[in-house]
Each structure stands twice: as structure tokens, then as C-alpha cells.
Design a protein around this nucleic acid. Structure first.
Length: 407
DNA sequence: AGGTATTCACATGAAACTATTCTCTGAGTTAGG
DNA sequence: TAACTCAGAGAATAGTTTCATGTGAATACCTGT
């Protein structure tokens, strides 16, 4: 772009009135002063945690609910209030919130404990120390001063799925050895059957109390959206019925409020970029597509090389026929590897990679039996042709392969 | 025809291995007193 | 002698490989009619 044109563009941009009054309030974890339709859950949580104010140990809590039902928001909200009260009254309560899904931060036993210690201001190396050494340091650190620790473990299922429940066992057991301090665990999970895989001992001590977050229904999502929209946009900018439609979209997806808010935000961004003044219902469709596209593009570009080749093979084979099998993918994959001078991985591993791609929602892999001709996975692509083409393009650019070459 | 046994082509699981990143320790080296 | 350097041992972790075992149903093979 020419320099003049560009600066002109920026000036225009500034002159243009923004659609947003306060875009911040459409951010996912923007904490509101009021949370709609979660009064019961808030009350329950507060009741359970309140004993901490009398320096008694609150029961451990387990919070269930699907994504976007306000679990994290509620937990943060309640603990924030609790903390404020505690500070006023000079009651020693410490609250630590950890999201166990964050890579490199808290997704293993070692890292979680190390992260907790960092909250206490201890320096813990990211590797090199034995795990029980870290436990010891943790133990001593907590013991140093008398206080109640409320530990919120978000997405706890991820952690346990990966590293087993030993960590939870240790944490629940640690209480009996502490003289001064006490720990209360608040586990948050969106996997409803998660506790089934836990050791019974852990299960019973972790879920002394349970709180369930049901999905929002369409009306409730509407309310939530309205509340946020009122803050976010200048008035009269939304087309009539847009909120309702947006809520309907989200209610279809098991009442995920997070989804709804994102949809609204993206729709607004599209409108703004197109320099329109009003957000229309049709923008929601565009927004939905854009979100999906961004998600896929993001996933594909960040895949490791081997995964990309597997995906490339899959896409290529899928172009020719609708049902393809693991073995076929592996054959093509091996040839492609030769082409890019990469040592091929074993079929065992490729099987796992296919599962991973399936989990990410890019492809669908279903185990079927072809009777006499063995058992395998039937694999197909999940996306529409626009996105598929986009994927192919990314992969070709990235791998330096040719689409039309015969392998 | 009807029933049973085989068999394929992988799936699925567990354990072991590899490579990388990092700490800690103690031996050897160096510089200053 | 104190400070410094540096190699080696031990850990955590991610990504694989190796080895072992499992498995659903289309076929092959019987069996008795």
C-alpha cells in the first residue's frame, strides 16, 4: 500500500466512530459485578467456603458442568469476595487459582506444585529437581505461617488424565500432616463422569461437596448477552432480534455462554471492519464461519511436521474416495516422507496421530471391522470444501509438497 | 442351510528408550594473598 | 585459600519405538439334512 494511502487509512480509522463502547466487556473472563442465573451455585459455593473465615477448614468441593456454564467465573467471583472480606477482617486466607490445562505451566504434578510455590514467591526451576523434593519445599512453605489455603484447580480432568490421581491423593493427605495450615481443594471439571476414574479414596475426599452447573437455556443466554451487549455497544447498533438469534445458536451447542459471547464479538468485529454501522443477523453466520475457519487454520499451522504430513496424506486420499483406511494413509505418508527427506515414524505412532487429529475435530476416524479383511479405522474429513482448500494450501506452503504429484 | 472356526489388518496398551533441558555436586583450576 | 569452571550424575518431560495382546465380522470350513 502507498504511504499516503496508508496514513489516510489510519486517519479515517480514527475518525470513524467505533461500534464498541467498551469492547473489554466481551472478553471471556471479564468479571462482572453481577452474574446472572447462577445465584444458587454462588450461594452454595459461598456456604461451603465460608468456614474459612472462622479459620476452620472448608470441605473440599467438586464443581461440574459443561463448558461455558459459568463454573470458572463463579469460582473466581466467590473467592474474590471471600478474599476481600478476609482482608478486611485480617483473616489469613490464601487463594490460588490454577488452570491445569495450561501447557508448560501446570499440566504435570511437578509443574503444578512448582507453580503453587511460585505463588508463594519461591523460585523453583522448571526441571532438575526430584518431585518429592518439590513436595518438601511446598510442605515447609505452607507450614511456615498459619493460614487457610483454598486451591482452585480448573480443568482438573486434564491433569488427572495425563498424570494420574496420585497428585490429588497427596494433596488431600497433606492436610493430616500440616499443623498450622490447612488446604481446601476446589476441583473444576467439565467432564461429568470424571470422578469415575479416580481412586475411591481420592474420590471420597475430593468430593465432600459437589456443585453442578446445568447448561443455560436460551432465555438465560439472552439475558447474559443483553447485559454484556449493553455495556459493550453504543445503543441501537444491533439489529432487532440479533441477540435472540445469537442465543439460539449457543443454546444449540449445549448452552455454552462463552460461545455466544464470542459469536457476538466476532460479528461486531466483522461489521466494524466492513465499515458498516449496524450489526445484522446475517453477520452471525459470517462470524460463525470465521470462528470455525480461524480455529482450523490455527490448529493446522501449529501442528508438528509429522502431523502435517499425515494430514496431507489424509486430505489427498480423501479427495479421491470417501472412505479411506489407516494403512492407506500410512503408505502414502511413508512415500511423502521420502520426498521431504524425513525419517518416517512407525505405524503405531501414526495411528495415535490420527487419533489426535480426530480429537482436534479436523478429521473423523471411526473404528470399523471389514470382517475377513481386518479391523481398521475409517477416516474422513470433517470440514467443508472452502476450509479444506485452505488447509491444503497451508500444508503445501509449509511442507514444500506438490498436490498433483503421484506418490 | 446353519453353525463354528479362521483370519485379516489393524487397534489398543504398556513399557522401555531417546533426546533435551535443567540442577547439583564435587574435582580440578586459577588468581590473589 | 577462596572463587571459579566444568564435566558428570540425576531429574523431568515429550515424543517415539518395541513388544504384546485384543478384536469384529466377512469368509472358509464343517456338519448333518
Amino acid at each position: 500500500m502507498e504511504e499516503k494511502g496508508l496514513s489516510g487509512f489510519f486517519e479515517d480509522y480514527l475518525k470513524r466512530k467505533s461500534l464498541f463502547k467498551d469492547k473489554h466487556s466481551l472478553q471471556l473472563y471479564y468479571t462482572l459485578e453481577q452474574i446472572f442465573h447462577r445465584e444458587d451455585q454462588i450461594k452454595q459455593t459461598a456456604n461451603i467456603l465460608a468456614p474459612a473465615l472462622r479459620e476452620e477448614k472448608p470441605s473440599n468441593v467438586f464443581i461440574y458442568g459443561k463448558t461455558g456454564t459459568g463454573k470458572t467465573l463463579t469460582a473466581k467471583y466467590v473467592t474474590k469476595q471471600l478474599k476481600e472480606t478476609a482482608q478486611k477482617q485480617k483473616i489469613p486466607i490464601k487463594i490460588i487459582y490454577v488452570n491445569c490445562k495450561l501447557k508448560k505451566l501446570a499440566d504435570t504434578e511437578y509443574r503444578l506444585i512448582a507453580q503453587l510455590l511460585r505463588e508463594y514467591g519461591e523460585e523453583i526451576p522448571i526441571t532438575g529437581l526430584p518431585t518429592d523434593e518439590v513436595y518438601n519445599i511446598f510442605f515447609q512453605t505452607i507450614e511456615k505461617e498459619k493460614h487457610t489455603l483454598i486451591l482452585i484447580l480448573d480443568e482438573i480432568d486434564q491433569l488427572v488424565g495425563k498424570t494420574g490421581d496420585e497428585l490429588l491423593y497427596n494433596l488431600t493427605r497433606i492436610n493430616s500432616e500440616l499443623k498450622n495450615a490447612q488446604i481446601t481443594l476446589v476441583g473444576i471439571s467439565n467432564d461429568l463422569v470424571f470422578t469415575d476414574i479416580l481412586d475411591p479414596r481420592v474420590k471420597s475426599s475430593l468430593s465432600e461437596e459437589e456443585i453442578i452447573f446445568p447448561p443455560y437455556n436460551a432465555m438465560q443466554i439472552q439475558n447474559i448477552l443483553q447485559q454484556r451487549a449493553k455495556k459493550a455497544f453504543t445503543e441501537g447498533i444491533l439489529e432487532e432480534g440479533l441477540i435472540e438469534k445469537c442465543a439460539a445458536y449457543a443454546a444449540r451447542e449445549h448452552g455454552d455462554a462463552r460461545r455466544a459471547i464470542e459469536l457476538l464479538r466476532v460479528a461486531a468485529e466483522i461489521t466494524e471492519r466492513a465499515q458498516e454501522q449496524k450489526i445484522l443477523i446475517t453477520d452471525l453466520d459470517k462470524a460463525e464461519k470465521k470462528i470455525e475457519k480461524d480455529r482450523i487454520v490455527d490448529i493446522v499451522t501449529t501442528q508438528p511436521k509429522q502431523h502435517k504430513i499425515v494430514l496431507f496424506s489424509t486430505l489427498k486420499l480423501c479427495e479421491e474416495k470417501k472412505a479411506i483406511f489407516t494403512g492407506e494413509i500410512y503408505n502414502l505418508y511413508e512415500n511423502l516422507c521420502k520426498d521431504v527427506q524425513l525419517r518416517p515414524l512407525t505405524q503405531r505412532r501414526i495411528g495415535d496421530i490420527i487419533t489426535e487429529l480426530d480429537m482436534l475435530g479436523i478429521i473423523t476416524a471411526k473404528v470399523i471391522s471389514k470382517g475377513r479383511y481386518g479391523r481398521t479405522r475409517e477416516i474422513s474429513i470433517n470440514t467443508n470444501s472452502t476450509i479444506t482448500q485452505k488447509m491444503v494450501k497451508i500444508l503445501i506452503d509449509d511442507l514444500g509438497l506438490e498436490w498433483n504429484k503421484q506418490y
